[in-house]
Simulated scan of single mutants.
Amino acid sequence: MNTISFPSRQSGSAIDTVIFDWAGTIVDFGSFAPTQVMVDVFAEAGVAITLDEARGPMGLAKWDHIQALGRTPEIAARWCERHGRDMSREDVDAVYQNFMPLQVERVGRYSALIPGALQAVENLRARGIRIGSCSGYPRVVMDAVVPMAAEAGYAPDCVIASDDLKAGGRPGPWMALANMIELASCDVAACVKVDDTTPGITEGLSAGMWTVGLSASGNEVGLSWEAWVALTPDEQQACCRPAEDKLRGVGAHEVIRTVADLPAALDRIEARRARGERP
């Protein structure tokens, strides 16, 4: 059996593994690929939902995301008005079947790397940190995204998709722990999960890891890069504050704006580890 070899880190307080989410974290500033397609597939089913509504359950596996939308009171009422019944498992299956090919077709439109992502990853590599990843996307979508990211210069050491594991996806710890196994990481307290959604933060916490939430680049703010940089500093702060509160509210140990700020956040986590703190 092949084994993976990584450089060892000398300090007992050092972080040795960072596990990234994808959309809204490393690629797709504003996390548009999954949300806009959700709007479109519900429209195909005769039920209008807004982009903000589509963002609500973000971070879940996509079948679960669709089911969660169908259980939202306002959307459930619209579904019942259109179809004369509550959204059933069979309805979720049908919407999901429509979602998948559309997601694969469109994901490339939104999968540009987030500014500063490559530099942050290079910093981690220089520190001897293993790079893992997981996503709410199923494997068929990840098979489209991963080569695009590699072409742009980002190639994590491990990629786990939401349907790779029998145990399921977020908010459970399974994808994060599968990264640990694949990367031969020995201590969950030396691992950091980085995500822009509350289920992704809960995933890392459930696995016993440190967690870093991203407020500006992801689902909670939901702006494109162009729209984000057009804001004044005060406007940016106002946009980020609710996202920061939400991510801290579910237990994120650090909240930063984008992955470009991650190296400094890791320094702070390593300082906490040096003081004997654990996640």
Rank of each mutant, 00 (worst) to 15 (best):
V140T: 11
A265V: 04
C134H: 04
A54F: 01
S11R: 14
A120F: 05
F42L: 01
R106K: 14
W63A: 09
C186G: 15
A23R: 01
G222V: 07
M38H: 05
T258E: 10
D64A: 05
A76V: 07
I160D: 00
G136H: 01
V104G: 10
W174V: 00
D93T: 08
P242A: 06
R125S: 01
N2K: 08
I131T: 15
G169S: 11
C191W: 01
S8W: 07
W210G: 10
E122R: 14
A271N: 10
A189G: 15
F29N: 01
P7W: 02
D261M: 01
E254F: 08
R275N: 08
V250Q: 03
A33I: 04
S162N: 08
L247T: 06
R268D: 12
E74H: 11
D234W: 03
G70D: 04
V250N: 03
G70A: 05
I114Y: 10
V146D: 04
M142Q: 08
C80Y: 07
C80K: 15
S5T: 12
A243H: 09
A33M: 06
I256E: 11
I160K: 06
H65C: 08
V39G: 02
I269P: 15
T3P: 07
K166R: 11
S217F: 00
Q236E: 11
G168K: 06
F42H: 02
S162I: 03
R85Y: 02
R272E: 03
T50E: 13
P173A: 04
Y110Q: 03
F32I: 04
A161R: 06
Q10K: 14
R275P: 04
C239G: 04
W210M: 04
S185G: 15
N219P: 06
G222I: 08
